[in-house]
Computed example of a mutant assay.
Amino acid sequence: MAPTTYYSISLFFPEGIPGKIQYQQNDLELFLSANGKLTATAMAHLRSRELAERFLAAYLPRLQKRYKDGFEAKVGEWLSVRDNKRLSARIEKDSSLVEKRLETGVLASNVTP
């Protein structure tokens, strides 16, 4: 079986995590979920770097408004040495949700696109 590659968005807070989300992290790093929430464990698993970069570009103004210049964001590449159905299903589910959010412009995490 071939390895599976997927992409995510990491956010680093060099000055420390803002208080209301501090409980979620251990190492000054959080991820963006497919619903646009900052999370330590439920990062979006996206099928392509291009999709991840578009997702980050769409959310960047919201993140800058909320956290000013106190963070750094980047697209990361992940490689799973095992190809499994559960991971593939997660990549497809998250990628589909992100594409819908980008197409519709519905970026609020509490609204379904």
Rank of each mutant, 00 (worst) to 15 (best):
Y7H: 07
S8V: 04
I9P: 01
I9T: 01
I9C: 01
S10Q: 12
S10M: 14
F12Y: 14
F13G: 01
P14V: 07
P14K: 10
P14Q: 12
P14I: 07
E15K: 10
G16W: 09
I17W: 05
P18K: 05
P18V: 04
K20M: 12
K20E: 14
I21Y: 02
I21V: 11
Q22D: 11
Y23K: 11
Y23S: 13
Q24N: 05
Q25G: 10
Q25L: 10
N26Y: 14
N26L: 12
N26Q: 15
D27L: 13
D27Q: 15
D27K: 09
D27I: 10
L28G: 03
L28W: 11
L28D: 15
E29M: 11
E29A: 09
L30A: 09
L30C: 03
L30F: 05
L30M: 07
F31S: 03
F31T: 02
L32S: 01
L32C: 03
S33A: 07
S33V: 03
N35P: 00
G36S: 09
G36Q: 04
K37V: 10
L38F: 06
L38D: 02
A40C: 09
T41I: 13
A42H: 12
A42G: 03
M43V: 04
A44T: 03
A44G: 01
R47N: 13
S48T: 15
S48D: 08
S48G: 04
A52Q: 06
E53W: 06
E53F: 07
R54A: 12
F55R: 02
L56H: 03
L56A: 08
L56S: 06
A57Q: 13
A57L: 13
A58E: 05
A58S: 05
P61V: 10
P61H: 08
R62A: 12
R62E: 15
R62W: 12
L63T: 10
L63Y: 10
L63S: 09
Q64W: 08
Q64D: 09
K65Y: 12
K65R: 14
R66P: 00
Y67R: 00
Y67S: 00
K68G: 01
K68N: 06
K68F: 11
D69M: 02
D69H: 05
G70K: 13
G70E: 11
E72R: 13
E72P: 00
K74L: 13
K74Y: 12
K74P: 00
V75E: 07
G76C: 15
G76I: 15
E77D: 05
E77W: 02
W78H: 15
W78N: 12
L79H: 12
L79V: 15
L79S: 08
L79G: 00
V81N: 11
V81Q: 14
V81H: 11
R82T: 13
D83Q: 13
D83G: 07
D83P: 00
D83W: 12
D83N: 15
N84Q: 09
N84G: 01
K85S: 14
R86C: 03
R86K: 14
L87K: 01
S88Y: 03
R90D: 14
R90A: 15
R90H: 13
E92Q: 12
E92I: 05
K93R: 14
K93V: 02
D94T: 01
D94Y: 05
D94Q: 06
S95P: 02
S95Y: 06
S95C: 07
S96D: 14
S96I: 02
V98D: 02
E99G: 01
E99T: 03
E99R: 07
